[in-house]
Design a protein around this nucleic acid. Sequence first.
DNA 1: TATGAATGAGTATTCATTCAT
DNA 2: CATGAATGAATACTCATTCAT
Lengths: 198, 198, 198, 198
Amino acid sequence: MGRPSNKEQRRQQITQGLMETMAHSGYDKSSIQAIAKSAGLTPGLIHYHFKTKQEILVELINNLNGKAQARFQARLDLASTATDRLNAYIDAALALGDGADETAVSAWVTISSEAIRQEEVREVYQGIVAANLTQLTTLLSDYKKEMTGKLDKAAIKALASMILASIEGCYQLATTAGELMPRDYAAKTLKALVHSYT
Amino acid sequence: MGRPSNKEQRRQQITQGLMETMAHSGYDKSSIQAIAKSAGLTPGLIHYHFKTKQEILVELINNLNGKAQARFQARLDLASTATDRLNAYIDAALALGDGADETAVSAWVTISSEAIRQEEVREVYQGIVAANLTQLTTLLSDYKKEMTGKLDKAAIKALASMILASIEGCYQLATTAGELMPRDYAAKTLKALVHSYT
Amino acid sequence: MGRPSNKEQRRQQITQGLMETMAHSGYDKSSIQAIAKSAGLTPGLIHYHFKTKQEILVELINNLNGKAQARFQARLDLASTATDRLNAYIDAALALGDGADETAVSAWVTISSEAIRQEEVREVYQGIVAANLTQLTTLLSDYKKEMTGKLDKAAIKALASMILASIEGCYQLATTAGELMPRDYAAKTLKALVHSYT
Amino acid sequence: MGRPSNKEQRRQQITQGLMETMAHSGYDKSSIQAIAKSAGLTPGLIHYHFKTKQEILVELINNLNGKAQARFQARLDLASTATDRLNAYIDAALALGDGADETAVSAWVTISSEAIRQEEVREVYQGIVAANLTQLTTLLSDYKKEMTGKLDKAAIKALASMILASIEGCYQLATTAGELMPRDYAAKTLKALVHSYT
DNA sequence: TATGAATGAGTATTCATTCAT
DNA sequence: CATGAATGAATACTCATTCAT
């Protein structure tokens, strides 16, 4: 009895609203009123579903990460070798056409920058970075076995870090200076570098 | 007659003030009040020397870029081969101990993110990106000749872009998740990747 | 659902607040604080209902013009001849006892002066001037027919302009030097001048 | 000994500076810095010659009035009859081509409006209004004798007031809605009205 | 659930005036 | 006389959050 709950839908609407405003206005300039407008809701309702603005941000971060993981998993299902799996990771991160979902990429760059100053955001963000480093380390270890590469543990960790850094850097340059970048260079070049190295 | 000018000194003080507050509070939260406090000046005086807050930011960007170029030039003077010169570039960008000047690096990451939303900042930022791409392309072309590498023009452009992205990504991860990163991995790993590739 | 709207009432309160402060402090000195106080509201609420201070001013101009037109219409209903109608116009403008609504008159003088410097205000103000010139021209044409006057079109236009100028001038002197002016001279003298002329 | 004083010249420069900025920015927006710039001087020097901003305004009012009187006197020298003298007054005020010295007229309109709110300005302004009323009353009395007009003292006072109001109104409309006004209507129409009336 | 009115603290910017040189 | 650095108070406008309905 009573109307069916729409909490989940509303929360989705709201995080999407934040993502869109944040993509071109940044986090600070994404006022609750602006988010509300972008989500087609009213300011009061935002605070009915989220206690604070930061709470929306955290949920958005997790949403974006979830989608990225899903993209990776989808490609993983088609991969049979360790090389395929490593490529799947890089492609899932970069092969979207270097900015397929421009809004999401732009929002992610902004999130990285918010991680510098908001403790709680930093924690969530670092959790995601740590998870990705682990994931990449595993992928690289398997890959090394397959290739009888000579990398030691430290080198693998360093390589994983550099791959992650490159990906984040590509997001950033795609957002801030996309016009200056070559077409579709990112995934291809990164894969080539990694494969030549191992 | 008249009081001796101290404009240059004051402008320096102010841009440094912005750099420091921006490094841990971001641009929006770097209020004129905060900048003033950090610079040991009064808010009114800030606006006596700079018309707008954005003007301070633009000057800071140019300052930081100038220092980076100076670091590169210094290393360039010691380099004799094309390989040395390429290494000099990467080292100048990354070998500061992955965050020697943490404040400047953190400020730079924030600047990249501001480039998304402030037109004028974007223009300045893109100018610097373009200049660096050109610089790197030249370095890589020379390097290729020296190594009889097989890279074509497009590949060189792509590699230059990826190197720049990696550097920016390293700055970002150093700032947002420095604890998770290996010690001193950045310059070493990037150089290794590039050299194995060519 | 939701709180009942009181937008119209609040906007009225606010424009009245501006009118009062503007009448004796001018537009620039009518701070949002001052308007808020005069309206019995908080500064934040002012900006909830009006985006900018200028928007309040524009609404006030239209309000004042609306009231003036209403006064004229009321007198028009009682007028049967062209002479009556012309008198109705002048009386509606001036016969309020040369300052019956001193506050409104004073605010209007200030508005005229703001029209010099604020583009948007000027446009609205000129629209009202133009409408009044048209109105007066029609009144004078009818009046001329009734009186078999010898005025040509250009003379009527000039006369309409002079009547309007005289009215505005009366407002100004009433506000700035009211004590020096004779009692109730305005409507009577202007009507006499016009009638003797035609 | 010592350099020759340039006080008078400096004061002139400064009042002219105020006149110019005030003409299109109003009094409040005419900052000392803006006046200084317009006068080709420095802010500090302004306050060396004038204690306050208001003092500049008062001197400007007197300057403008002085010039107006001079224009009238010049025409008066050519006038032989009372009619000529009355025309001389109106022409001196209005025949400058309805805005010959646009800047001065615009500044004067602004001054009228400042008279509403600044006590000291109002006093000076009212002094000028009073002097003009007296002047006009005398002119009209003489004129009446010449024309054996039937105006009583009260009517003359009322007429003088209306003439002054019309002049001020013409200034105002010339400044705020000049494009809407007929060419050179002002002096001609006002003289015609007055002469038909007496 | 939902609306939108209301608030209070905060922000960039302006400016008359003072004053060291 | 002259410069221009410096200040402190004021101002329009923003916004997360609360709350009456």
